[in-house]
Nucleic acid binder design. Structure first.
Length: 843
RNA sequence: GCGGGCGUGGUGGAAUGGUAGACACACCAGACUUAAAAUCUGUUGGGCGUAUGCCCGUGGGGGUUCGAGUCCCCCCGCCCGCACCA
């Protein structure tokens, strides 16, 4: 008996697939196409076990669909621009380009042994000039269609390094390198007009039937459509009225002050004239730009001394405050605060001693608000106090609508639909990205580069020894003649957000070498992506931007109308986690230990026997040392084991914890399957039970794959393998069953399956064999077992004919000993029979 | 802070509102072996009971239902996102 040797078997079959060009995607109008795509990786340099999970899932789908007769496209590429390459250049020297391409080569070598069914002829990296040149062409077309514009926007500014920082580089409000407090600063930047598509992007979510509800909900909330009231507060000093937008106009009688953003025009006016205001606003500009920083930071206010009149009572004056938590980007940048029904407003009013006025109460409790705002659901009925449109008891929803109608009739405000979605700022003041292909000319203004001059390539002779954007200080690259008038002009030195790169790569895969962004015929054949797979962390930005880009590409003639929604089905997979092992030093600080240094069973260090603390299931992180390297796993057990393990146990959308014992168990199982096949004889014998087990396995494994229940498919395959090993059937029947087993396992463990297939004399490659079909006639059962509940608790079960009528089942149930005993001669209060399912006798 | 999700034995998990714990890990027992490994067989949610069996049990509390892990409300914990990380 020879042991299955993955180390020799796996490369053998990978070569066989390569030689046969098994995974080459070809346009075949005779066959239905299937495009499966996993979110492409950032080339960090090492593949991560999370990559293995992601790509294995896609590979299962791709191989399965291929067996089902589809013409499959399953490509791979690299999301290769971004900050880490520049950081590496700063930290260890060298060039971002060399670092990136070196990493790509290394990762490709680590990925290939996984045996993924990828068409590697379509591979590209977003930092290839061939790719980003087409992206520049696309950008120019979008410019032409008015989808791009420039305006001022706020960035994180490091006053010591004199450079723009990404949010990630701001730690507790300080620059990550300089440790200097970060300031907010305005720059002129490029924007995509995604907000024009708010309604379209929101409405079209309804059609995405094969997207997770949670993702659609997150996107809908992100777009944030709301209906509210916009009106002006007149100033007592005769200055321009302050326009506010509110989604709760019904609470206007509870207004306590008017608040404006530090970036509001009025605030800027005060900044120029009032030193105190200027000092406060300067204070507000400290710290990072994230919504999280703004909303979790201390709420600060400044009383401007300006007063406005309440629109319903000219004698009622409200103070105007500048408040640091009001965003200029949303609504009008000004609000009125109603502290009784908004916790943030309440906290602010208590802090600055501003009035709190209740406008409604719960229907059964009229306790005035103290330190907890009363914020019922908008659908809940509440009792109003002194509502100006005469409301008594009504829901918040009704109150809002009634109020807007009232105000519109009275003529001092209007109902307005707002979206929270902001335009997409794509400018980055960094080197390692796609250059924005425009030129700034003193005479002509902003001039698009000519298409024949694309790609605008990044210069290679740059250094990263000083902070800032090397493009900015590269005269020979920056200085260029104006494409329009030919006079000396300067290139735009901003590069594009890397989200731009990933917003259309899926379309490029349909014709990766085309000399236009896409080839419309290829795009029409391959688009849409039938199944997209990636992490939930991309639920909003990447997926929303891609949906926007698909529409923009349609407007600019690069995608057919049918590809408006680029991803027909989306699946968001969980992370691979691992326990953290730690001991403590004399100061009780944790010391982390690598998994291989720990005896898992006893939770002790192998070297010393010292006990370790085990923190289960944490995100893998190098600093916590809880990382397993897929390369080591493949070396030790082979790719099939790694693939089988990441598909086992945990449902794909949930996190899976990597354990050494689990990997070991997967490896043992695959060995068992090989031994099942190895010494099989042959014959004409058949076995009814095994045939039935085959039919059940085919149906259930297939269902599992179709519904992303890979863990369930795996469990069914265990059952099926167990059934075969326990079966007393003859060699002919067993041989047939094992061939089906190999086929059903082939999307998950393709190498082992090929080996078994060829060993058992299967025809050609199993990768090309058609997916097995269950003999439905074997699945029909004569009798079924039904549980009997008494008052909802299971007390007995009966076997009934699968064709028995409801009445017959009732009769049988009532005659059952346990039921008779429980009834004690009484009639049941109720008798529920769910055919084929359950019987419940209520006494 | 806001938006979204998750929580089931010692562990990973299974369960169209219908027998909670499939399948696997781990543990324990047995077979094989001089021995170990490997392999094979069997037991295993907790409690009570000689036993037919009974009680408890899906993060905590409440509700809807003949019936709730599943639906609703409140709370706790953890995870993801928050627009310049990818």
């Amino acid at each position: 008996m020879s042991r299955y040797n993955a180390r020799t078997v796996e490369p053998k079959w990978q070569k066989a697939w390569d030689d046969a060009q098994t995974f080459l995607a070809t346009r075949d109008e005779q066959r239905e196409k299937y495009y499966v795509l996993e979110m492409f990786p950032y080339p960090s340099g090492r593949i991560h076990i999370g990559h293995v999970r992601n790509y294995t899932m896609g590979d299962v789908i791709a191989r399965y669909k291929s067996s089902c007769g589809f013409s499959v496209l399953h490509p791979m590429g690299w999301d290769a621009f971004g900050m880490p390459a520049e950081n590496a250049a700063m930290a260890i020297g060298g060039h971002p380009k060399d670092w990136t391409y070196g990493n790509i080569a290394a990762m490709r070598e680590q990925m290939k042994p996984l045996g993924l069914s990828i068409d590697w002829t379509r591979e590209f990296a977003t930092c290839d000039p061939e790719y980003y040149g087409q992206q520049q062409a696309l950008f120019l077309d979008m410019m032409d269609k008015g989808l791009v514009y420039r305006k001022n926007a706020t960035v994180n500014w490091d006053p010591v390094d004199m450079t723009v920082l990404a949010n990630e580089q701001v730690i507790d409000g300080k620059g990550w390198r300089s440790d200097a407090p970060v300031e907010r600063r305005d720059l002129t930047q490029w924007f995509f007009k995604i907000s024009d598509w708010s309604e379209e992007l929101l409405g079209a979510l309804d059609g995405l039937d094969n997207w997770p509800d949670k993702v659609k909900l997150m996107q809908a909330n992100w777009i944030g459509k709301s209906r509210g009231l916009q009106f002006g507060f007149e100033r007592t000093d005769g200055g321009a009225a302050i326009e506010v937008y509110t989604t709760r106009p019904d609470t206007l009688m509870g207004a306590s002050f008017v608040g404006i953003s530090p970036d509001h025009p009025l605030a800027k006016e005060l900044e120029a004239s009032n030193p105190e205001a200027a000092a406060f606003i300067a204070e507000c500009r400290k710290g990072g730009t994230t919504a999280e920083a703004l909303e979790t930071g201390e709420k600060l206010g400044f009383d401007t001394g300006i007063k406005v009149k309440h629109p319903l009572n000219p004698d009622w004056e409200l103070p105007v405050w500048v408040a640091n938590f009001i965003l200029m980007d949303y609504g009008t940048g000004a609000i009125f605060a109603c502290p009784a029904h908004d916790q943030r407003d309440l906290d602010f009013c208590r802090k600055y001693d501003l009035p709190v006025i209740d406008t409604f109460f719960a229907t059964d409790d009229a306790t005035p608000v103290e330190n907890t705002a009363f914020v019922p659901l908008k659908t809940e009925k509440v009792k109003w106090v002194n509502h100006f449109a005469g409301l008594d008891v009504a829901t918040g929803e009704d109150a809002v609508n009634t109020t807007i109608d009232f105000v519109e009739k009275a003529g001092w405000g209007k109902g307005v639909t707002q979206y929270r979605l902001r335009d997409w700022g794509l400018s980055r003041q960094r080197y390692w990205g796609c250059p924005i292909p425009v030129v700034h000319c003193d005479d002509c203004g902003v001039v698009p580069e000519k298409k024949e001059n694309l790609p605008v390539e990044l210069p290679v002779d740059v250094t990263f020894d000083i902070p800032g954007n090397p493009l900015d200080r590269h005269p020979t690259w920056r200085d260029t003649p104006c494409p329009s008038c030919g006079k000396a002009a300067k290139r735009e030195t901003d590069t594009m957000d890397t989200f731009v790169d990933s917003s259309w790569y899926f379309a490029r895969f349909t014709s990766p070498r085309a000399d236009t962004p896409t080839d419309l015929d290829d795009a029409a054949y391959w688009m849409n992506v039938d199944q997209y797979i990636g992490g939930i962390e991309h639920a909003i930005l990447h997926l929303l931007y891609s949906r926007f880009f698909a529409r923009a590409m349609q407007e600019t003639g690069h995608l057919p109308a049918s590809a408006k929604e680029p991803f027909d089905a989306l699946f968001t997979q969980g992370m691979v986690t691992h326990a953290i092992y730690q001991t403590r030093d004399e100061n009780n600080r944790p010391i982390y230990h690598l998994p291989e240094d720990v005896d898992e069973a006893n939770a002790t260090l192998r070297a010393t026997g010292e006990a370790v603390e085990v923190i289960p299931s944490a995100k893998m992180s190098k600093s916590k040392k809880n990382v397993v390297d897929p390369v080591d796993i493949i070396d030790q057990y082979g790719a099939d084991t790694a693939r089988w393990f990441v598909l086992s146990d945990s449902p794909p959308e949930r996190d899976v914890e990597w354990t050494a014992s689990g990997a070991e168990a997967s490896w043992k199982f695959l060995g068992r399957v090989w031994r099942l096949a190895e010494d099989l004889g042959d014959g004409d014998d058949t076995d009814q039970d095994l045939e039935r087990a085959c039919a059940i396995a085919i149906n259930e494994v297939t269902l599992g794959i179709e519904t992303f229940g890979f863990n369930k498919s795996v469990a069914k395959l265990y059952e099926f393998a167990n059934a075969i090993s326990k079966s007393k059937a003859g060699p002919g029947a067993k041989r047939k069953a094992v061939k089906v087993l190999a086929q059903l396992m082939s999307p998950m463990t393709p190498h082992l399956s090929e080996e078994i297939w060829s060993h058992l004399g299967g025809e050609g490659l199993i990768a090309n064999a058609p997916w097995p079909v269950a003999d439905e006639s074997l699945l029909v059962q004569d009798t079924i077992t039904m549980p009997i509940q008494i008052n909802g608790k299971r007390r007995a079960e009966i076997d009934v004919s699968s064709e028995a009528s409801k009445e017959e089942v009732e009769k049988l149930a009532l005659a059952h000993e346990a039921v008779v005993r429980a009834l004690e001669g009484r009639e049941p209060k109720k008798l529920i029979v769910v055919p084929g399912r359950i019987i419940n006798v209520v006494i």
